[in-house]
Design a protein around this nucleic acid. Structure first.
Lengths: 132, 132
DNA sequence: CTTGATCCTGTAGTTACTACAGAAGTTATA
DNA sequence: TATAACTTCTGTAGTAACTACAGGATCAAG
């Protein structure tokens, strides 16, 4: 059993974040040593690492918890997992194309923008009343 | 001079958001009617619309305010505008490639995932101790 | 005169942490 | 043994940019 700092190091999840996950009921409350300090097992660290990977993949915390619960449950079949993943992929794709759109729009706005212009064309564009 | 509801309609900025912008000092406090209700001029609506466009382009609110201030100032030259825009474009590009990476990773994780699997390969992958 | 729409202020909730403050306990060094 | 440095504890507040009330006042229409 290890202390929270070591659990943080082993899982890659920050100390404050671990305590936050505990408060939020994302992970079970760990046992306490006689001095009231939290003690984590290898399993606890595994959970934290699992959550970290999910978060790194862009899942929201609630979904990460769902996945964690699924992975601890008996029926580990894929349905819900795949559903969540597919949903998240389409969310990512939508986000990507939106950002690409923004990038293009912004690039075009700056195209005529050159130091020395008396009146900035980008600002003019943004100030214009038309379009939406 | 129009009421806040109409200003919201004309600018596309929500009523609560308009009041929020006022609280935060993003837009100047509007004049008040004798009944204490806010009254907006065409110029005020213009500011809101400007902010809306900036936000739609993905600028953070603070940057939107900077742009707004620039567009109201005397020296409307492009330097700071372009700087902000270029910075934001590179931020967008970084975000896009990050999301693409996530999409690929997630897609690969789901590849072997098929309803009916007894043990979900995606969960196994996430539970595995290796890599980070 | 009543109904429904709009507006007001002020506060709290959202997401997922992060950053303290102040106290207590632990470990390493002199 | 004293002291310093480190770690942990609880609890609270801050972040970004809104959004959602609650509870009350005012307004316009019929």
């Amino acid at each position: 059993m290890i202390a929270i700092g070591e659990a943080s190091r082993q899982s890659g999840v920050g100390i404050e974040t671990i305590r936050y996950y505990e408060r939020e009921g994302i992970v079970p409350k760990p046992v306490r040593a006689s001095n009231n300090r939290r003690l984590y097992s290898a399993e606890d660290v595994g959970r934290l690492r699992f959550l970290k990977k999910c978060r790194d993949l862009g899942f929201r915390l609630a979904d990460a918890k769902t996945l964690l619960d699924l992975s601890e449950g008996d029926g580990k079949d894929c349905r819900i997992v795949k559903e969540l993943a597919v949903l998240h992929i389409s969310y990512l794709r939508a986000k990507i194309s939106e950002l690409r759109r923004l990038e293009t729009a912004l690039y075009e706005l700056t195209a005529n923008c050159d130091s020395g212009n008396v009146s900035c064309p980008m600002l003019s564009q943004l100030r214009s009343a038309n379009d939406r």
